[in-house]
């Protein structure tokens, strides 16, 4: 019932509708697009180095003769995958840590929040930058874990303070007075009642993870060659951006579109889930 209402509101929301259409289109491009293109991303065309977009190479070629269309779509697949996985892990972590800290209070709260504080103080950029290139190459899953490990703390603080107010709600007290164990109360009454916050957070985490990946890859600290992501492509593209703009424009444009569409959905969700908004 409620989810129906939310969905209806979501699709009445222009922002969210455009965002959703754009995202579906981008995902289709990323995963179906490669079958339409003439070249595979691993192929090198030794006849065309740094050639401008043409009928043969739609988006031009790179300095080693790769078809930019194929490479960029390959990079986008990776970026989308990383975004989704990081968002899932970090929102989940934030929900669990925040809810336990907020509900139990006392020393549980102090220890967990101290950990949060420490992680916030640690320069995440530096840690990921040092560790990630030293991971076995190709094992980008570790990179996902690292990125997620440093992106849940702020949300967990929000979850914690929401939990602290939910804890005082009468239906939570009622459950306690019925003799239901506390961990069960957290999963049955507290986390579901924060689902709107968590959904929004997860959505926005997708876009910040995509940006984060690109940012680290920009300096060579993220996805390692020969694998590619939008970030690594933008990094190589920006070096030659004045002379060979297509190298920069295509990956950067897709990155911006991807982030924009996810953000639009996130903001639309916020409106749809908030009963107070009247859009």
């Amino acid at each position: 019932m409620r989810s129906k209402v939310v969905l209806r509101r979501l699709f009445r929301n222009n922002q969210a509708r455009y965002g959703f259409v754009a995202l579906v289109a981008l995902v289709l491009v990323a995963y179906v697009g490669p079958y339409i293109g003439k070249y595979d991303w691993t192929e090198k065309d030794f006849m065309a180095f740094l050639s401008a977009p043409s009928a043969d190479h739609w988006w031009g070629t790179t300095s080693i003769g790769q078809d930019l269309y194929a490479v960029t779509l390959r990079g986008m697949q990776k970026s989308i995958l990383i975004g989704l996985m990081v968002a899932l892990i970090s929102t989940g972590l934030a929900a669990i840590v925040g809810a336990f800290a907020g509900y139990f209070g006392g020393w549980v709260d102090r220890v967990l929040m101290w950990g949060v504080e420490l992680l916030l103080v640690l320069p995440s950029f530096l840690l990921i930058a040092i560790i990630s290139p030293r991971l076995k190459s190709g094992n980008w899953l570790w990179f996902v874990v690292l990125l997620a490990a440093f992106s849940w703390m702020i949300t967990s603080r929000v979850v914690r303070s929401m939990t602290m107010s939910l804890r005082e709600r009468e239906y939570v007290q009622a459950a306690l007075y019925m003799g239901i164990p506390r961990w069960k109360i957290i999963f049955r009454h507290i986390v579901p009642n924060m689902s709107s916050l968590l959904i929004i957070d997860a959505t926005l985490n997708v876009s910040s993870a995509i940006i984060g990946e690109a940012a680290l890859s920009f300096f060579g600290f993220g996805i390692q060659p020969p694998d590619v992501s939008l970030g690594t492509l933008i990094a190589t593209g920006s070096d030659n951006a004045t002379g060979y703009p297509w190298l920069f424009v295509f990956p950067a444009g897709l990155l911006v579109l991807l982030v924009l569409s996810v953000n639009l959905i996130g903001d639309g969700l916020r409106d749809a889930l908030d009963p107070g908004s009247n859009s």
Binding site: R2, E170, N193
Partner: peptide, 19 residues
């Protein structure tokens, strides 16, 4: 003992889990 001791809360909106 919780079986024999129950409570009815003040705010009927807040006392029931909306989800």
């Amino acid at each position: 003992l919780r079986k024999d001791l129950q409570i009815v809360f003040q705010d009927p909106m807040a006392a029931l889990d909306p989800r």
